[in-house]
Amino acid sequence: HMTFVALYDYVASGETDLSFKKGERLQIVNNTEGDWALAHSLTTGRTGYIPSNYVAPSD
């Protein structure tokens, strides 16, 4: 899985969403939902949907 870094803070709007903080590292599990991606946080160990425009690929 590619690793991504959060560009902004995001507060989950539902139970299936994943909250994260700017700078948090995430792995995209499934990116077939258009503007949303299923992601796993390497920081918190949690998995949920995130807005895909809130993250960018990290080196």
Rank of each mutant, 00 (worst) to 15 (best):
H1C: 15
H1R: 11
H1S: 11
H1E: 13
H1I: 12
H1Q: 11
M2D: 11
M2K: 13
M2E: 11
T3E: 14
T3V: 15
T3P: 06
T3Q: 10
T3K: 05
F4G: 05
V5R: 03
V5I: 14
A6I: 03
A6L: 05
A6S: 05
A6Q: 00
L7D: 05
L7P: 05
L7E: 07
Y8E: 09
D9G: 03
D9R: 00
D9A: 04
V11P: 04
V11Q: 11
V11D: 10
V11E: 13
A12F: 03
A12T: 04
A12W: 03
S13W: 09
S13E: 12
G14S: 13
G14Y: 09
G14H: 10
G14I: 07
G14Q: 10
E15R: 08
T16K: 14
T16Q: 14
D17S: 08
D17W: 09
L18H: 03
S19I: 06
F20W: 02
F20D: 00
K21M: 09
K21R: 11
K21T: 09
K21S: 10
K21N: 08
K22R: 09
K22Q: 07
K22D: 01
K22G: 03
K22H: 05
K22M: 07
G23D: 04
G23Y: 04
G23K: 01
E24S: 01
R25C: 14
R25S: 07
L26M: 08
Q27H: 13
Q27I: 15
I28V: 08
I28R: 02
V29E: 08
N30S: 14
N30W: 13
N31Y: 15
N31T: 12
T32G: 12
T32N: 10
G34E: 07
G34V: 06
G34L: 07
D35M: 10
D35N: 10
D35L: 09
D35V: 09
D35E: 12
W36F: 09
W36Y: 08
W36C: 07
W36Q: 05
A37E: 04
A37W: 15
A37I: 15
L38K: 04
L38D: 00
L38F: 11
A39R: 00
A39W: 03
H40V: 15
H40R: 14
H40M: 14
S41V: 01
S41M: 02
L42S: 04
L42W: 05
L42D: 04
T43E: 13
T44G: 02
T44Q: 06
T44F: 01
T44Y: 01
T44A: 02
G45N: 07
G45C: 08
G45E: 03
R46E: 08
R46T: 05
R46G: 07
R46A: 08
T47N: 06
T47I: 10
Y49I: 07
Y49W: 15
Y49L: 10
Y49Q: 05
I50L: 03
I50S: 00
I50F: 02
P51G: 01
P51I: 02
P51T: 01
P51F: 02
S52E: 04
S52M: 15
S52A: 12
S52F: 15
N53A: 13
N53Y: 11
N53P: 06
N53Q: 10
N53L: 08
Y54C: 11
Y54T: 06
Y54N: 04
Y54P: 03
V55R: 03
V55S: 04
A56E: 10
A56H: 08
A56T: 14
A56I: 14
P57S: 09
P57R: 09
P57N: 08
S58Q: 13
S58C: 15
S58M: 15
S58F: 14
